[in-house]
Structure formats: structure tokens, C-alpha cells
Design a protein around this nucleic acid. Structure first.
Lengths: 217, 217
DNA sequence: CTGCACGCCGATCTTGACCTCCACGGCTAT
DNA sequence: ATAGCCGTGGAGGTCAAGATCGGCGTGCAG
């Protein structure tokens, strides 16, 4: 009875089996295949056999490129964690107008969840958060993003570090959750409008703290 | 190599082995033990042996009360999902002053994550979201809470249903994420103050939409 | 006193997933 | 052209964890 559905939606045909690739290219291809499978099934439900088959190779080659399943997962995770952190930092540095900063950051989250192959699931919906190595990566993303936001808040409001961090986590969390829920609702509102709406919400909320409130038009 | 740490922090001594209990009491005790283990280790890392040992019984007893591991998990999940939904609904119904509604709701999330044994992890940090039954429960919580908030927003702002839902998910997500992150930071800010701060943020944000903005003092 | 029912336990089975061993085919240097 | 080498493939080992079977002790009805 317990057997769940084993058939997966194959978004792309399985690669022809037997082509020889240079090492680097093969590695990247394996990463791509692994990402598709991990995103579709999660870490635990994903079997190494699935990934190998998806890539059109046999299992030993997989193990010649990655020591184990966890390493493979971590490689992907690191990649996408770094991507989000950089994206958020860029957004915050893209302008000095704080309202535009909020907008750009919000948009960064939306762009991130819309990115290729739903890779954001590895970061935001991982089913391996009990593994310390994974937990560390995910926490790092949350913290680095929150701190980046916190720096701006602390400087422009004069709130304590702890209070600023609380607000920053809140805004980061808001962006993350709402972007996911927006995607999950099949984009029931156009992206621009959604970003605009959330920016209004967040900006009005954050702009009201001490040092602000005054300089707004 | 892959062997992770097997030793768990035992927050409470293992029950003495050999006491006979009536069926109902034993079932409740098993639920309690299971919750402790699932919270501490997550679903996958938690072994039925661990739960049995924690409860001070042998494995067959466990299977005489629950058909399988998943059923045990779902029983706990249902329980705590319903608790949060009810808590949020109560908070929203506790007053007709919208700012106090925000405050009460925010406080409900904080109270929830502070509750006994960190049961909120089962709902907010489950590592079994790929299981449809679990996904369904967790989505239900998010949706029911968002809809409850959405009802208030839609009525008091005149925004479209889709837009209101977006804001509602955002506020729910904000509360959830920030409550978790606050707990994770070892309550670096007193709970009252944190709730107050977040309420300011959320209220200023949400109060600025169409039909509001006017009637605030 | 005695048989019965209930709850409980030690020991075992089986499945499934991660991870390696022996045979094959295409490229290169002479 | 031919011999060697390197990467590939299928089949199998190992082990952990979920799920189960026969026996034991205790308390109560008759």
C-alpha cells in the first residue's frame, strides 16, 4: 500500500545514453540533473538511481564526480544560497533611495523564486534541515540577508541592533513567504503589481520608525 | 563516515520500563513521546525505536496503537495545525479594533512558537513536506490563517480578493518567520517589546491602504 | 483454585537505498 | 592497422529502519 507514485513528470527527455563528455561538462550536466530531481522530489525521495538515469549515465560515474548524495546536494545548495545573498546585496546597493531599495529587494525575492527549475525549493523548502551542514547553509542565507537589510534599517532608524534585526528578519521573511505563496497561487496577480503592493506595505511600515517619518514627502 | 550524531539531548528521563497502562492513557503517552522525538530530530531521523524507547515501551506496543510512522506523525500534525488556526481566529475575533487585531494575531504566533516542546516545528519546519498528506495539512494552516486575515483586510481596504490574499499571506508569513527567528535568537528582545515592534511595522503598513488612512488618529 | 483475557516484550524479517566489483567499447600513438 | 588505456555499464553487498510473530506475566470472573 505505502508505495507512492513512482512516475515523475519528465519535463525534459532523458539524455541519450552513451555520449562521452569532458569532465567539467559532465559534472555540470550531473548537477543539472540532480537539481531537477531534488526539486521535484525532495532530498529523501530522490534516489541516486533517479539522478543517474535522468542524466543518462550509470551510477558509478555519479560517484566519480561526487563522493556521496549529501555532497551533491550541498554543492547545489551552496550555489543557490550564494545566488540569493548576492542578489539581495545587489538590490540594496542598487540605489540610495530607501523606498526603491525596498522595491528592488522585494523584486529580488520574486525573481529568485521564478528562476530556472524552481531551485529556490532547495533553500526555502528543504527536507534536510536536520542535517547540520544544510541547516548551517540555510541559516546563513537568512542571516546574511537579514543583516544586509538590518544595516540599512539600523543606520536610518537608530533602533538597537537587536530590534533592527527583528524587523529585518520580518521583512526578509515576508518577502520570502509571499513570493512563494504568489508562485503557488499561479501568479494570481501580475508580478509587477504584487511587488508594488508589497513594497507599499513594507515601506509604509518601515518608514514610520524614528529618524524617518520626518523626511518623507 | 555518514553516521551523524546518534546521541540526543534527553530533556526528560526515559520512562521506567514495565508499567502497565490502560489503552487510552498509553496512547496519549505515546503521542507525547513521539512529539518529543519528532521535534528534536525531525521525521526522517526519528526512528520508531527511539520513540518506543523514549516512551519506555517496546516497538510492538507502538504498532498496536498506530498503524505506522506516518499515521503517528499526522495525528500530531493535525492536533497542532488546528491549534494554530483556532488561535489566530480567536485573536482576530477578540476585538474590533484593527490595530489590536494585528497585535493579538502577532502575539498568537509568538505564543505558538513558545508553546510546550516546540511543537511548532512540526508545522513550520517539517521535513516531510513532500508527502502529500503533510503538504495538505501545512498548506491548510497557511491558507486558513491567510484567509482569516484576508477577510478583515478585504472588508476594510476594498482591495481585490487576490490582492488582499497577497497581503494577508505576507503578514502571516512575517509573523511566522519573525516569531521563529526571535525564538532562535534566544529571545534577544523581550516578547512584549518584539510584539509591539512588529505590530507597529505591520499596522503602519496595512493601515495605509485605501479605506483606512483616514480614520486613524 | 483455575482458566482466560489483556497488555507487553525479545527476537526476527524484509524492503529499499546508498555505495562498489568485473566485463566492454571507443580513442591514440607508433 | 593494431595494441593499450580510460571511461562506462550492469549486477551485487551492506546496512539501517519500518513492520511483525510467538511467548510471558498479571489480575479477575467463576
Amino acid at each position: 500500500m505505502g508505495g507512492g507514485v513512482t512516475a515523475i513528470e519528465q519535463t525534459e527527455a532523458v539524455r541519450p545514453r552513451g555520449t562521452r563528455l569532458p569532465r567539467r561538462a559532465r559534472r555540470n550536466q550531473l548537477l543539472g540533473a540532480a537539481q531537477e530531481v531534488f526539486v521535484a522530489q525532495g532530498y529523501h525521495a530522490a534516489a541516486m538511481d533517479d539522478i543517474a538515469e535522468r542524466a543518462g549515465v550509470s551510477k558509478p560515474v555519479l560517484y566519480q564526480h561526487f563522493p556521496g548524495k549529501l555532497d551533491l546536494y550541498l554543492a547545489l545548495l551552496d550555489q543557490h544560497c550564494e545566488a540569493l545573498i548576492q542578489s539581495v546585496r545587489s538590490a540594496l546597493a542598487s540605489t540610495s533611495d530607501n523606498k526603491q531599495r525596498v522595491r528592488a529587494t522585494m523584486d529580488a525575492y520574486f525573481a529568485y523564486v521564478e528562476d530556472d527549475g524552481g531551485a529556490f525549493r532547495l533553500v526555502f523548502e528543504s527536507d534536510l534541515t536536520n542535517e547540520p551542514a544544510v541547516r548551517e547553509r540555510v541559516d546563513k542565507v537568512t542571516n546574511e540577508c537579514a543583516e544586509a537589510i538590518c544595516d540599512v534599517i539600523a543606520e536610518d532608524t537608530g533602533l538597537s541592533r537587536a530590534e533592527s534585526m527583528l524587523l529585518a528578519s520580518g521583512l526578509g521573511g515576508l518577502a520570502q513567504v509571499v513570493a512563494r505563496s504568489w508562485l503557488h497561487s499561479d501568479r494570481s496577480v501580475p508580478r509587477d503589481q504584487a511587488v508594488q503592493l508589497l513594497t507599499s506595505l513594507a515601506w509604509r511600515g518601515i518608514a514610520g520608525f524614528p529618524l524617518h517619518g520626518i523626511e518623507q514627502h
